[in-house]
Design a protein around this nucleic acid. Structure first.
Lengths: 138, 138
DNA sequence: CCGGAAGTGTAGCCTATGCTACAAATGTGT
DNA sequence: ACACATTTGTAGCATAGGCTACACTTCCGG
């Protein structure tokens, strides 16, 4: 089947739906790592949104089985959430390393990696990793 | 100023707001090129959405001065819309050429370019173009 | 132990995108 | 010219994600 423009756009929209989940799972993992506990305000601060928005996303991810929380209590990751977080962190790092290896400035690499990472298929990610490997700086 | 995670995410969210505009402007340009006229159904078909959704996006882009339409009539681009479409087409092509030059398969390159193009800063785009240039495929 | 600060939750509103179902306009062929 | 197919428009609903304002818990310090 020839891949139509509609197929590509549908795929991109589907990707978008999972981005938030990955971002939040990754953020929870990072915050747990750095502070021992993850509070709603930490997430809100990290994403630059109000605590209300963070709260709703957390509630959704809890429905989806990625996050574990009780009212007024800190936020934990379920095993599935941890897996997702690890995968997201790895992909993020690969994209970041790749952009650096390409010669993009640190600042720009950090910004672009955030947007790009969710749209990189496994195949492209492998190509990114191979490139970063062979042109690895430092 | 150190770029915080919140800054990066805010930037990514802002980008997202403009994606639809670029995608639609580009699509209108392509369709006009191929069929002479651009109808709502053409856009709906291209994006794989209902004509209602396409209609609403078109209405928004008209408010934003990118598209020109009258009820029940074909869709035109304003000068600003044409400029945006051209820029989007160029960026899309650069990202696509870059992925191909990296060795990514045609099919995957097509999918990933769709998602990646909107998150590539001018600096990174230049790096992409330079790489595609020097590693020119076939 | 109790009062205020910090952290959460809830109510209610907004936009952007999805959808189906139904209504209205356009255009086309005999 | 009229009927029918195509194309647009509109009504009404849903979800994801933004927000402010206000209420309620928790937690800590004096």
């Amino acid at each position: 089947m020839p891949l139509t423009a509609a197929d590509r756009h549908r795929r991109t929209r589907r990707d978008h739906a999972g981005e938030t989940a990955e971002d939040y799972a990754e953020a929870v993992a990072v915050i747990l790592d750095q502070h021992g506990v993850c509070r709603l305000v930490d997430l809100a601060e990290r994403f630059g949104v109000s605590h209300v928005t963070a709260n709703r996303v957390v509630a959704r991810l809890e429905r989806e089985g990625l996050i574990d929380t009780a009212p007024y209590q800190p936020i934990e990751l379920t095993p599935a959430g941890r897996r997702l977080a690890r995968a997201a962190q790895r992909r993020h790092q690969t994209v970041l390393d790749f952009l650096r290896a390409l010669g993009v400035s640190e600042r720009t690499a950090n910004i672009d990696a955030e947007g790009i990472e969710h749209h990189v298929s496994p195949e492209t990610l492998r190509a990114f990793a191979a490139f970063a490997e062979s042109h690895g700086q430092v």
